[in-house]
Structure formats: structure tokens, C-alpha cells
């Protein structure tokens, strides 16, 4: 296990270096990528934030609390993209649907090691994370939140939950591309887009059944809204920890089971299509 852990770190270093080289090889491209990422991230949250500022709050949260929630969303999704955004690991249905799993099967590494490391892009993928860091810091300052070790542990817990839910859903639904490569090639992207659009909204005031649905079956409420409430100390502890942990565990387990079943199917049927778009793109 120690050898595998060492190899994971070595591969992270490798992909970090490749990402850095990619960033530095063309300054104009690098600046355009960073600028477009920044504009994309800021515009994605502008709607909710402007509404909150205009009306002094929205969905049961003040404007500063909304800023904190949006900051947390950027931080968590940015971290997820930084770790798994490269070469379509987060958008796994693309790799499967394009017949590119073959490239993984000829590498003498366990698949989980490849999936854990290949998407690492700490430089080109850090934009969302950095924006989230600035927004969260600004919100913490305005809200005078006490930064204790427990608070930081809770923050780490919710960041992990966000990543687990995002990847869990992407891999769970993305595994369908093993059976229907053409129809499901973009299903992971759809799921990530859905999370991105709904995960930034405060959900207070919704009917109970809808709120329940958005915290379990389609768990967008667990991506930023509930973590923000918890970190702002507005929820009771059992719900703060138990619900996200339980739902994330269900999604991750289902994703692992379905992905393995999909791989078994792939070993029987392979994929009769192959998109040569740069084999990891």
C-alpha cells in the first residue's frame, strides 16, 4: 500500500508538471484560458449574488451569507476541478463513450490510480479554487466568523462531501456510456452543469418534498447550501454531518458498483466507436 501511495504522489507530480508545461508553452493561450475561466466562474454566480444584494438577501440568507455560500461553492467545485478536471476524468462519460478506456487498460497501473491522478491540473485548473478562496475570505471577514480548528475540520469535511457527490454522480450516470456510448457521451457534463446551475441557490422556503428531493435524490442542496448553513452555525449537528455523509456514501457506492458493472460489460462488448480527438480530450 505504501508503494501505491508513493506512486500516486509521483503521478500527481508528473501531471502537475505536465499541466505547468502546458500553461507555460503559450502565454497568449494561458491568459485567454485564465480570463475565460474567471469570467465563467464570476458570471455563474452573478445572478444570485446581485439578487441578494438588491433585495438585502435571498432564500433566507443575507447578502453576506449568500456571498459565503457562493464562495464555498467556488472553492469546492474549484478544488474538484483542480483534482479531477483534467483529461475528462470528471467528465468520465466522454472517455467511455469515445472508446478511450482502451488507453487506460494498456497502462500497467490500477484503474483507480489512473482515475485519481490523471485529472490533476493544479495550475490551469486553479481559477475557480482561487476565486472561491477570495470570496470565502471576504465573506468570513464581513460575517466575523470565528475560525476555530473545528470550523476548519468542518470546512474540509464539506469540501470532501462536495467532491464525492460531484464525482459520484458523474461516474454513476456516466457509467451508462458503457452501454450507450453515443447517447450518453455527454451525460457527465449534463450532471455537472445541473449541479453548477442549481447548487448555487439558497433553498430555504421551498416545499418540504422538493427540499427533500434536492437534498437526497438530486443532492444539489448538499453542494453548498447546507454546508454554508452549517458553517454559519445555523443547523443542528446530526443533520449537518449525517445527511451529507449518508447521501455521499450512497452515491459513491452506487457509482463504484455501476462503474465496475460497466467495465465488465466493456470487457465483453468493448466500444465500437472511437473518437480520435487527442485520445484524452
Amino acid at each position: 500500500m505504501a508503494a501505491k501511495t508513493r506512486s500516486v504522489f509521483r503521478l500527481w507530480r508528473l501531471y502537475a508538471l505536465m499541466d505547468l508545461r502546458w500553461m507555460l508553452q503559450d502565454t497568449a493561450s494561458m491568459l485567454i484560458v485564465l480570463l475565460s475561466e474567471t469570467v465563467q466562474n464570476l458570471s455563474a454566480m452573478a445572478g444570485v449574488l446581485l439578487l441578494a444584494v438588491r433585495f438585502g438577501g435571498v432564500g433566507g440568507m443575507t447578502a453576506d451569507e449568500v456571498l459565503f455560500m457562493l464562495g464555498f461553492y467556488e472553492l469546492a467545485s474549484g478544488l474538484c476541478m483542480m483534482l479531477f478536471g483534467g483529461f475528462n476524468i470528471a467528465h468520465i462519460s466522454r472517455r467511455i463513450g469515445r472508446g478511450q478506456v482502451d488507453h487506460m487498460l494498456i497502462q500497467p497501473r490500477p484503474l483507480w490510480v489512473q482515475l485519481l491522478t490523471e485529472g490533476f491540473m493544479p495550475f490551469s485548473g486553479s481559477c475557480g479554487f482561487l476565486i472561491g478562496l477570495v470570496l470565502t475570505a471576504a465573506a468570513i471577514r464581513r460575517l466575523h466568523i470565528a475560525l476555530t480548528p473545528v470550523w476548519f475540520a468542518l470546512l474540509g469535511f464539506y469540501l470532501l462531501i462536495h467532491i464525492a457527490l460531484t464525482l459520484g454522480q458523474s461516474f454513476l450516470y456516466g457509467a451508462s456510456a458503457f452501454w450507450q456510448p453515443v447517447a450518453c457521451e455527454e451525460i457527465s457534463s449534463m450532471i455537472l452543469d445541473l449541479n453548477s446551475q442549481l447548487g448555487r441557490f439558497p433553498l430555504f422556503g421551498l416545499p418540504g418534498w422538493l427540499s427533500g428531493l434536492l437534498h437526497t435524490v438530486l443532492p444539489v442542496g448538499l453542494l453548498a447550501y447546507l454546508p454554508a448553513l452549517s458553517l454559519l452555525r445555523q443547523l443542528g449537528k446530526p443533520v449537518e454531518l449525517g445527511l451529507p455523509l449518508g447521501v455521499a456514501a450512497v452515491f459513491v457506492t452506487a457509482a463504484v458498483v455501476c462503474f465496475q458493472k460497466g467495465l465488465k460489460h466493456y470487457e465483453q462488448c468493448s466500444c465500437n466507436r472511437y473518437k480520435d480527438m487527442g485520445h484524452r480530450c
Partner: peptide, 18 residues
């Protein structure tokens, strides 16, 4: 796979943007 090399003519193992 440590002892085998595989190359499919219509595929590339090269990293496209590097």
C-alpha cells in the same frame, strides 16, 4: 502490460497538446 507493447494504427498514445 509491463511486458507488452500495443499500438493500434488509428489511435495515438501521444499527448496531443504536448
Amino acid at each position: 502490460m509491463r511486458r507488452t507493447g500495443v499500438l493500434f494504427g488509428n489511435r495515438s498514445e501521444l499527448w496531443w497538446d504536448h
